[in-house]
Amino acid sequence: MIMLKIENLQASVADKPILKGLSLTVNAGEIHAIMGPNGAGKSTTGYVLGGRPGYEVTGGTVSFDGPDGPVDLLSLDPHERAAAGLFLGFQYPVEIPGVSFVQFLREAANAQRKVRGAPPLSGGEFLKLAKEKAALLRMDMDMLKRPVNVGFSGGEKKRAEMVQMGILDPRLAILDETDSGLDIDALRICGEGINAIMRRPDKAVILITHYQRLLDYVKPDYVHVLAGGRIIRSGGAELALELEREGYEAVA
């Protein structure tokens, strides 16, 4: 079953073309890694799929398998994409002063449930779920009572992203450099979290990363090299090792 089908996607930021004909098909049950040099368009890919304002699609199509079948992803607003089952893990998670994680995530989870016609989670139900996912990422529940990402270290922010993913239970996660800023232990914890939450036949993951190290923990089924705004090479997990060994220039 096809989870995501990107065809000839072109996008610009501030009138500068970044994506220049990106095509990628991701099936349910698969984990894909997108690697590539700085400026290749990796983060832009995530933002365009998430619908970030300022990232203008100038061509191509994206079909996403939502809860009610395939939808034109690009026609949805960002919050509608989330409700359809898309999760975007941020490279730089944003701080929201004064709004606690618990409040933010409960509102978010219930907003998504409302769109899907599910009843809202009660305070108790939500806390139980949050506790379970926080434990999975070895995060103290007290941290989730603090304002969203405020005062969190880089590693804590990334773990909090994974806790959010666990709570929101998406169909497809696009994780933008989840491994950046993580120490060795946090890298393993995040990797295990991704496997526990997303390694399922009805889910899929796109990992955007510079390095092979996260892929030691989250084994990709496919690895793609993104350069100059398109995918120039695809292969299995061994391609990541080859890239690590020989560099982008040699492989691409």
Partner: peptide, 24 residues
């Protein structure tokens, strides 16, 4: 606007995201 997009990416409609931020 970054905060608003972050909140939207979690499924919060714009008016709910705005309300949360302004309330805080």
């Amino acid at each position: 606007t970054q905060g608003l997009f972050y909140m939207a990416s979690r499924g919060l409609p714009p008016e709910v995201a705005k309300r949360l931020m302004l309330q805080a």
